[in-house]
Design a protein around this nucleic acid. Structure first.
Lengths: 196, 196, 196, 196
DNA sequence: ATTTAACCGAGACGGTACGTCTAGTCTTGAT
DNA sequence: ATCAAGACTAGACGTACCGTCTCGGTTAAAT
């Protein structure tokens, strides 16, 4: 027998929606850890099998719920002012992190990914890497425009710009606010040779 | 009835040590999540109650093990060369992350803390905040020495220096290696006004 | 919420049988007291929940096993010879008591019932009282047939006939054998006015 | 090392008494089953070890407490009227069984003996067998006096006389009262050839 | 229009681990 | 050496979920 994968064409949209809604509701109420698949199934009025059939793990279910709810900004803007463009993007992330529902949910997701390699890969592929690439494209453009040093290692640049965000997200010693956004972008850009 | 707390004077050192060793071993093998109290007790040749008696949660047990096993570098060195001093410290962290036993264990721990507020608080208090403060003390000294700008926000500086590490730890898109250490410190310091 | 009782239609016959067999085996080996639900589940290759789902207590499980395994002689035979009929019945009990598996199990059960009122009640209702009533019906018939005195108190008669069995079962000073059966019935019947 | 048995000479009478009292009190309050060694120790103000040191099991402790509290009637009276003498003795047993403290305690003891061979042996030796022998001596006397048949098996006679008591004690379908005492003795004696 | 095959809700199943409880042993310091 | 106190190993308790596995009962496509 090859794989016995279910037929997406016959999938019940009603169930899919109910499961994602229940997931969103319960993850906000109980947190990722305390939210059991059983509880999601019960809250959604759905059989457990229907969840197991379509999602490989609770983490991936969360990620799917995320994809549904959050419109992840695609390409970076390019106004010619690289500092301003970066601030817009990072400010978007900060707002997400401060959302009372999505913030904890994002933290949970990153947390779960630490002991679920498949979820981590999915998270990197669907969210993290695309954003990093977009950021690097914008920085490359800034190099061409002569706004930042040509020799700089863009991975390092990304760490300078985004690392602070993740640092404060997972180890919240300090607030994530607008002052943070402006400070981090300005200092990071100066680090990589921008004349501000 | 007051609390019925056990008497630390009569505590068995033998058991305490065996439990912490088993925790170290199992957290590396299985990760924080999959490591059960039952398994720790069995591996340590100890009754479960002995674990529950002395530790309020698996997370705190992990932190205790960490405190025991890892010589957490206390104060920053001060050789006069702030860049070199920072590199030593961050290189230490990177080595920890790349240790086959402690690295996975640290990632696991940070992951679990994302949905366990009590664990997070304990982690911040016992490990993260002391290190950040030590770093800020060193940076303040560098300001006094005229090596970096006096006006710079030290929290931002810490994010520039350490954020990249956590970024690459929890979302491992890029390697944590020596090139990273040198790159991040040099660029970050330039960002905060060091003349390298 | 009403009761959340399981659906007997979906019950696994395989598990039910395995549990009852394991109970029979273990109660003989270990006795009622020392036989744990965990051990039954393990021996039956069954989840503990499956036992808890269908039986309210270990005692009821034991009684169920008994009902299953032992062909509890229902009505007394009526050959016209009351002495012979009684001997058949009591000899059956004696054989049960001497069975290497069921004997210890029965003693265990009666023993446990001495400090578990609910178990005692269940035992009386499901096993003891029906047998006593059957015996009394047979004795009443014998009274009508003029084989024993009409005035005799049937509860006393039952004690004369069955008391010796329980005496020797729980306080085994003397053997339970065929001589016992014949002796007790003959003397008891003479006591209550039979002309043998 | 040979046996490491404690030295009875150094035994604390204070503790022994306190333990037996606590046992009596708790067995009446909670019943045999629910009465834990821990609770006895706590109630007696005694270390658990002191109990384990001097008694091999809870059942034997109960038996000891019994021996302390109950003055077990020794020899049967011999008034010349065997029926009357037997009724006195059995009435004594019935009163014991109906005592609100000693009755449950006796039942518990018999119950526990069903899965504790050592306790059973102790119980038979210290209480049951001596009483049976005394009864048989009295019956033998009655045979000599021509009050009952010479050929009768005395073990059977004992079962007829005492069996009813144990039957009603361990499987209390019917009351243990004076009518029972009179009925059982009269019918039993008639069974074994007494002319009443 | 009927068959048929998948998905669906429901929930029983074999398991693992939970955190609590008690048994019986071991250790410590006081008498 | 025994005692009170209580920490220890051990393991069962009854509960909660895990992920798998039937079971009938809808659907929706293929006959």
């Amino acid at each position: 027998m090859p794989e016995r994968s279910p037929d997406p064409a016959r999938r019940s949209e009603r169930s899919r929606t109910a499961i994602l809604s229940a997931t969103r509701k319960l993850s906000a109420e109980l947190g990722y850890q305390a939210m059991s698949i059983e509880a999601i199934a019960a809250a959604a009025g759905v059989g457990k099998q229907t969840i197991y059939r379509w999602w490989p793990s609770k983490g991936v279910l969360m990620l799917d719920m995320w994809g549904e709810q959050v419109q992840l900004q695609g390409e970076f803007p390019d106004t010619g002012d690289v500092a301003a463009d970066l601030k817009v993007q990072i400010r978007g992330l900060v707002e997400l992190a401060n959302d009372p529902e999505l913030g904890p949910s994002l933290r949970s997701l990153i947390g779960a990914a630490q002991h679920e390699p498949a979820l981590l890969e999915e998270l990197l592929t669907s969210i993290v890497r695309p954003r990093i690439e977009a950021c690097k494209r914008r920085l490359r453009k800034a190099q061409e425009d002569g706004q930042i040093n040509r020799g700089v290692d863009l991975d390092i640049a990304v760490d300078l710009l985004y690392g602070g965000f993740y640092h404060r997200l997972v180890l919240p010693v300090t607030r994530l606010d607008d002052a943070f956004v402006n400070g981090i972008v300005d200092e990071a850009l100066r680090g990589i040779g921008a004349t501000l």
